[in-house]
Design a binder for these strands. Structure first.
Lengths: 197, 197
DNA sequence: GTCTATACTAGGATAGAC
DNA sequence: GTCTATCCTAGTATAGAC
């Protein structure tokens, strides 16, 4: 599958690593994740990860920035899609839930970023990402609606992060909460969110 | 201030340590926090922290459980306080915001717990705590309202955790989001939350 | 009940070869 | 562009004294 001549361009490698790192940081947290795990996940050596990003911190920062960019793009697509008969709110909500299902890591590592707001290097990046998303939201809805939207997003993130999704400790209340939070692929909840605007 | 004979009962010590640990874990995260920092914050030696709790993991678990218990108690008080002319929703919301202001650590370390849902030892504890709070909420309001309430709580946590509170990167949009999220000591938002029930 | 000393491991980062 | 070897620090946990 891989010969000893598996040299691929640095740009592509960086993207591979960022992808792997997004998963690893999302699951283990910034401090809990190791550059070695990231390397393993990306199929390369640990020193090479450090080589390409300088430090673990820098790698994490780029992961957070990439996550924000991804969310931003998904939002843009949802906003632009005015063919749909739905309102912007639900369209964005649906896009977000889709993203969640496709790539948990993005949301999880972004959350990890938020929670490190105290950190002098990471904090500013996380706050900037958060506010960029909020501001884009505000450009298509009023403050109250945007706030509720962010709140809903944070709940979704928490439910996923805490692994309540897995129904491991299955409980009818969990089901109810999920039904209410996501509806059928977001459902009532996000509908309600938009009709509040 | 402290003589060499500062022996205090273990129960009290445990509480002191839990308090310190709540702050430290809240700021640095589970993996990022060290038992040594906790020890310093509690004014004792690192090995003694380990001695009293067995492992760092166990200490963290007790921190999370304590955080949930604290929130639970604040909720009970708010629910019982039917002298107030306010609805339950806003009362609980207000109690939560009060708690936030008094002790950030509780919310932050609880959040750290949620985000470690993957962890086989911590995950179950975090999920249990989350659901206990949700269920108590459900006992005084309907599913939709309870969900929105949790969402609002997660947003509050995120705003605090990401340190947007500090206005470091001050931005008028941040102010707006805060005004909207907290109102004046929670305001409109939570009021709106309850009138949805 | 609490400390000092210490064993042991893990993990980030560097050097330098290929 | 990528690896192996390795340094060095930091951090959990244990042993054992007081």
């Amino acid at each position: 599958m891989s010969s000893s001549t598996d040299r691929i361009p640095a740009t592509e490698r960086r993207e591979q690593i960022l992808e792997a790192a997004t998963r690893v940081f999302g699951e283990q947290g910034y401090a809990g994740a190791t550059t070695d795990r990231v390397a393993k996940a990306a199929g390369i050596s640990q020193p090479y990860v450090v080589r390409l990003f300088g430090t673990k911190e820098q790698l994490f920062i780029e992961v957070v920035e990439r996550a924000c960019a991804r969310i931003g793009k998904a939002m843009e697509r949802a906003i632009a899609d005015d063919a749909s008969e739905k309102e912007v709110g639900p369209r964005i909500g649906e896009a977000y839930v889709d993203l969640v299902q496709t790539d948990r890591g993005i949301l999880l590592s972004l959350m990890q970023g938020f929670i490190l707001g105290q950190d002098p290097a990471i904090g500013p990046v996380a706050r900037k990402g958060f506010m960029t998303i909020y501001e884009r939201m505000r450009s298509v809805m009023d403050a109250e609606e945007a706030m509720r939207f962010m709140a809903q997003g944070m709940l979704i993130n928490t439910l996923i992060a805490s692994n309540l999704t897995e129904g491991i400790d299955d409980d009818d209340q969990v089901d109810e909460l999920f039904a209410c939070t996501f509806g059928d692929k977001l459902g009532l909840v996000l509908e309600g969110l938009s009709k509040a605007g």
